[in-house]
Amino acid sequence: MSEQADQRTQPTDEERVEMLETMLRIREFESRMRDNFADAEIPGFLHLYIGQEAMATGVCQVLEDRDYLTSTHRGHGHCIARGLDTARMAAEIYGKETGYCNGKGGSMHIADVEAGMLGANGIVAGGVPIATGAALSSKMRGTDQVAVAFFGDGALSEGAFHESFNQAAIWDLPLIGIVENNQYGEMSGIDEQHPPSTHDDLTIYGEPYGAHREQVDGMDVEAVYDAAARAVERARHGEGPSLVECVGYRFEGHHEGDSEFYRDDGEYEHWKSKDPVETYPERLIDEGVLTADEWAAMQAGVETELDEAIEFARESPMPDPQQAYEGLYADGGDHR
C-alpha cells in the first residue's frame, strides 16, 4: 500500500468552487466534441476524458502558472484544467488556423508552451521523458518549478516510464507522475497488462525508484488535490519524484467509435455512481459552499462559453495550404 498521508491538504471554498467549474467545463467540452464528432464535423479520431475530470482538475489546481505538464492522447482535460482557452482548443480539434497549433496538431497534440503545457502526445508514455527534462531544466536553472507528467495505466508498461523515473530519482528531480488508472489500456484490462502484484496499487512501480507514492480515489477531486499538493510540495523543496495513482474510470470508449465490448456487466453503473460531475455539486450544495442557484448559473455560464468556443471553431478559416511548409525549423528556412 502507498505511504499514508499524514496531513490532509484542504482546498479553500473558493478553490472547491473553481474545481467544480473546471470539471464541468471539461465534461461539457468533451460532450460537445463527442456529439460534433458523431456529426462528422471533426476530422481524425478522438479520445475523450469524460469520467476522469477529477484527476486533471485536482492536480492542476495545486500547480502554479510557472510549472510544467505533459499530457497524453487523452489530453483535452489536462489542457482545460491548465486553463487553456476552450475556443482555441476547439479550433485546433477542428483543424482550424486559429487553433493552438494552427491546425498542425489536432486533438492528440494540443500544446501551449507559454502556459507550460508541453503537449498532448500520441505516443504512449512519450511525454514522461519530456516532463523529466523540464524537471531537470528547472533544477539546473535553479528555479522551484515542478513538472507533472500525466499518463495512463497502460504507459507503465513502456520503458520510457521506467527510464525516466530512474533518472529522476538518481538526480532528485522535481517530477510528479500522475497515473490515470481508468481500468483499461485501449480494450485490455489492467489484469492483462500488469502482474497481479501491482493490481491493487500501481504506484508499486515507483517503489524501486524510491518515489514518494500515493494512491487516491480518482473520482474524488479533493482526494486528488490533497495527494497532488503533497507531491508538488516535496518536488518544490528538492525532495525528488513522486508517483500518484488516481483510480477511476472513463465513461466513453477508448476512442469515439469503440464498441466497448470489453466492459463487464454493472461495471459502468458502479463507476457512474461516483461520477464527479454529478456528486461534487451535490456535496458542495450540501455543505453550503454553493447554492443551487449558483450551480445553475455556473452551468449556464459554461454552456454559453462553450457554445461560443464551438462557434469560433466552426467559423474560423482552415489554414492556408502553404502553411504546411512552415514551422519546421527555427530559421524559418525552406522545408527542403
Binding site: 476530422p43 483543424g95 497549433c101 491546425g103 498542425k104 489536432g106 482552415m318 489554414p319 511548409y325 522545408h335
Partner: peptide, 16 residues
C-alpha cells in the same frame, strides 16, 4: 511527400 511531418488539418494534409 514534401519533407515535412504530416499535418493534421485536412487543408494542410491535402496539400502534401
Amino acid at each position: 511527400i514534401p519533407d515535412v511531418p504530416t499535418p493534421f488539418s485536412p487543408s494542410l494534409e491535402n496539400e502534401i
